[in-house]
Design a protein around this nucleic acid. Structure first.
Length: 325
DNA sequence: TTTGTGCCTTAGCT
DNA sequence: AAGCTAAGGCACA
């Protein structure tokens, strides 16, 4: 019998692995054939099978909004929303410009999706992302969560299910064989709240290896904790106003604001231009020219249609996988 | 209005 | 082996 902590969704046109590792979210770990991470204080294990995506709840933090960690509809809600399972991907792809670079990107990234993350976590993650490589960002975020995040206990039924089978020393290698039912890395930690980070000193934050970004994170935490910046309110604002509000924060320029708008607020007209996308745009659309910053930004905002942000993710992923081959 | 430079840290080079 | 450079930017001059 299936444990009550597991639900499954139809998984058509969805490449879970590509999506979770495409540089939009930084807290998902591959454990055997599954992916483990936190959504709203809930510790999930996600798996893709040919027919479906399954979500298994491993535990929930005491402050998470779920009184009963086995309550299936809650699980469904969190996973479903995070993964944006209602999105009609073919309909979005159909709005992309019909040119060679986009055709190549679509072909190379079939099933790539945009997630819907929590604004606070997303904002902090991308403030930390400046002049950092993905592995380093992952490292910083992991340290932040371990030091200042709420530990997430393993749900009782999961513990019962796995306790006798848990290896003494868990094999955490990325491709470790997952003899079912394999238990991943414990304990897990919720993302620290703004109030918790606001109570940190700059020096404490610097122990998470974020360097000059520490004062930015601290100031952002204080702004959010005090209510001076209301992240929920940004949902109701048009993209350019929400963008301006985010850019009031030190350490948040246009690129980081666009990432947060796209990955947390679903503002699909936001088009973050980082060095990879700049490279892609230059190589693919302006060969042998050196477009100015302004020209590039204008092109980015006019050429890609109503789902420009989605198109950006495809270009980004395309040049990354192309390079790694 | 544009352009250059310092900033923390570290992976991946030479 | 140690030193260098670039890495999914931003703020300030």
């Amino acid at each position: 019998m299936k444990p009550a902590t597991q639900v499954s969704f139809p998984g058509r046109d969805y490449d879970l692995a590509a999506t979770l590792s495409s540089g939009q979210a930084f807290r998902w770990r591959q454990v055997g054939d599954a992916w483990e991470g936190i959504i709203s204080g809930h510790h999930f294990r996600l798996r893709q099978t040919p027919a479906a995506i399954t979500a298994e709840l491993l535990g929930a933090s005491s402050t998470a909004s779920t009184p009963d960690p086995t309550h299936a509809s809650r699980i469904t809600h969190h996973a479903h929303h995070f993964l944006q399972l209602d999105t009609d991907l073919p309909a979005i792809l159909a709005t992309f410009p019909d040119d060679e670079p986009m055709r190549a990107s679509i072909a190379a990234c079939r099933g790539l999706r945009l997630l819907r993350q929590e604004p606070w976590e997303c904002l902090v993650s991308f403030i930390c992302s400046s002049t950092k490589q993905i592995v380093q960002i992952q490292q910083i975020i992991a340290l932040l969560c371990e030091r200042f995040g709420e530990p997430i206990p393993v749900a009782a039924n999961v513990r019962r299910l796995h306790s006798s089978l848990r290896p003494e020393t868990p094999d955490l290698r990325p491709n470790a064989k997952s003899e079912p039912p394999y238990v991943g890395c414990y304990p897990a930690f919720a993302f620290p709240t703004a109030a918790r980070l606001a109570a940190c000193s700059e020096a404490e934050l610097r122990t998470c290896k974020m360097g000059f970004r520490a004062p930015y994170i601290l100031a952002a935490a204080k702004a959010v904790a005090s209510g001076e910046l209301n992240l929920s309110r940004l949902h109701t604002l048009p993209t350019f106003e929400a963008r301006a509000a985010l850019m009031c924060l030190h350490g948040v320029g246009g690129k980081i604001a666009d990432c947060v708008l796209l990955f947390a607020y679903g503002k699909q007209d936001a088009f973050p231009v980082d060095v990879w996308v700049r490279r892609a745009l230059t190589e693919l659309y302006f060969p042998r020219r050196r477009p100015s910053e302004k020209r590039l930004a204008h092109f980015a905002n006019t050429h890609f249609g109503p789902n420009a942000g989605y198109a950006q993710q495809y270009l980004f992923h395309y040049v990354r996988v192309k390079k790694s081959v």
